[in-house]
Each structure stands twice: as structure tokens, then as C-alpha cells.
Nucleic acid binder design. Structure first.
Lengths: 152, 152
DNA sequence: CGGGAATAGTTTAGATTTCAACCACGTTGC
DNA sequence: GCAACGTGGTTGAAATCTAAACTATTCCCG
């Protein structure tokens, strides 16, 4: 086995800062959304994606892709969101296997309230503490990561 | 209630790219570590932090902080890692409430093997697809996030 | 010293997530 | 047509994670 190409000290520090900082940031946002609105980050994410979709509806597979969740997980989570009245699923007429997930008015209202608080957290702990250039760099970087992931 | 300070289009794009890209990146790393080495990312993280600690041992509370996990979760995960022989817990003589978590030789060997593959993934999907400047920006940015989180 | 508050860690129960199996429908090719 | 395979989505059981309660010890302060 050949020696792996370890990261150099600079790369290592950056990687670690990211791993650590992003984990703690996500944890904070999760707790904040949960205590103030009773939503987990992944539930919130589902509502966001639906709210942006045309007609506020999306096929389950697309929603899974947009929300970065497995289909199985999405099924379970949507079942919960549905029982709370925030989404509503129905069959796709053109493909009888398919299911549309619709954001209800109640779900949209819930999202609207949650988003107002959430954006404040995103600002306070990320946007406002990072220079515009560095934020732009993050955007570029993770766009590149996504593009790379979309290939093999 | 006053109108929230929404993100502008540029900030929004950067934030979204990060949320999406980092979620998918973590998921990939988790699956990779799991299939190739039977370790989740959070188990891996625990082994990493222990390996870097003096004497390859850390108090549970410190380990929880370093690995960005709740104490409860750490207890459960360490129990599992202990049953697999990768760590070994014992009591702290100076503080009888305390517990040291030790990395075993077997755990170190496991980590060593996993890290060789893991670094390759980190390179392939992040370090190698991002410019050095952008990587440095990520480091700066998340250092700032950590610093902000450490205050209230 | 003694009692209350804080800290370290574990445990239990309940919620969520993963994994594999599964059903239903659609697509392809013969 | 129809058999084999692929896709869309759900389900149930097992693994993991969270939240709250609990034990044990230490700290603080009168």
C-alpha cells in the first residue's frame, strides 16, 4: 500500500475548523428551531424546499434530493409532518407509483414564522461574523463540492 | 414584530450551497467509512481526538467537547466502541466522578487504516476541488464561527 | 464542619434514522 | 403481450440519538 497523501498543516487546520465549526453550528440551529418552533433542521429543510417549488409541491424523490435525505427517511419524516398538518401527500395522476408532497397553508405559515427566527441565527453565527469575501468563498467552494459529488 | 433582515441574493446562494454541499459531503464520508471500515463519522471523530490527546486518553467531558457530541451520546458511543475493543474506560484517581477514555492499540490501528482512506475522500471531494485561497477562507470563516459560538 | 448547588457521567425511555425487504407500477426487448 | 428489470415509494425492525432523570462526587460558603 502506498503512503496516503496526508493534508499539510494549513489544509488540516482549515478542514478541522470546518468539521468542528459546522457541527456545532448545525447543532445550535437544530436546538434553536426545536425549542422555538418544534421543528428539527431536517423538517425545516423539507418545508423550505416545498415552499420554493412551483405550486409548493414536489415529488418525493425530488424532495429527497433537494433536502439531502434518503427516501426512507423522507417517508418517515413526511408522515410525521403530515400528521401535524404541515404537508399533505397525494397520488400523481400521470405516474401511479408517484406521490406529490404538498405544503399546506398551515405548513407555510409555520415555515414563515420559523424562518424569521432562523435567519437571525444564520446571521448572528455565520453571516455577520464572516467577511463577505469569505462567505463568497464558501459558496464557491461548496458549489464545487456539489459538482464533484454529482460526478462519481 | 419587526421585519427580519433577510439574506440578500448573494448571501442566500452561499448559505444554500454550504447547507446542501456539506450535508451531502458528510453523508458520503459516513457511508464510505461505514462500508470500508465499519465506523460512523462520529465514531471516527472520537478515535481521532483520542489519538491526538497526550497519552491517547481524554476525560469524557473533554472528549465530548472535542468531538462535538453531547455527553449522553458520547456515553452510548463509547460503550459501543469499548465493546469492539477500540477504547477502554477507567476511573480518574484524582476526581472520583471522572472517567478517562483511552484509545487502545487496536483502536489506534483501526484509526490508522481508516484515516488512510478517509484523507483520500477529503481530498477528492473537497481539498482537490477547491482553490487553496477558498480553503483558507473556509478555515478562517469557521474559526470565526467557533469563536462566536464560544461566546453566548 | 454541614448543606445546597454545581459537575461528571450514566441510564432509561422515547423519538428518529438506517437498512433491508417489500409492493406497485413502468419500461424494455423479444 | 409478457417476462425481466428498473424506478418510486413505503414499511418494519434494529441501531442510534435525544432529553430528562438519576447517582455520585466535588465545590462553595456561611
Amino acid at each position: 500500500m502506498t503512503e496516503p497523501r496526508w493534508l499539510d498543516a494549513t489544509q488540516q487546520r482549515a478542514w478541522r475548523a470546518y468539521v468542528d465549526g459546522s457541527a456545532k453550528l448545525t447543532e445550535l440551529m437544530d436546538r434553536d428551531l426545536k425549542t422555538r418552533h418544534g421543528l428539527s433542521v431536517s423538517e425545516y429543510e423539507i418545508l423550505v424546499r416545498l415552499s420554493e417549488a412551483p405550486g409548493r409541491r414536489l415529488r418525493m424523490a425530488e424532495l429527497a434530493e433537494h433536502a439531502s435525505q434518503s427516501r426512507s427517511r423522507l417517508s418517515h419524516t413526511c408522515a410525521r409532518l403530515e400528521s401535524k398538518g404541515f404537508v399533505q401527500r397525494d397520488h400523481c395522476p400521470s405516474d401511479k407509483r408517484g406521490v406529490f408532497c404538498n405544503l399546506t397553508d398551515e405548513g407555510f405559515a409555520k415555515l414563515d414564522r420559523a424562518a424569521r427566527d432562523h435567519v437571525e441565527v444564520v446571521r448572528t453565527y455565520l453571516v455577520d461574523v464572516v467577511s463577505p469575501d469569505d462567505l463568497a468563498a464558501i459558496g464557491r467552494a461548496f458549489d464545487a463540492v456539489r459538482a464533484r459529488l454529482d460526478r462519481g
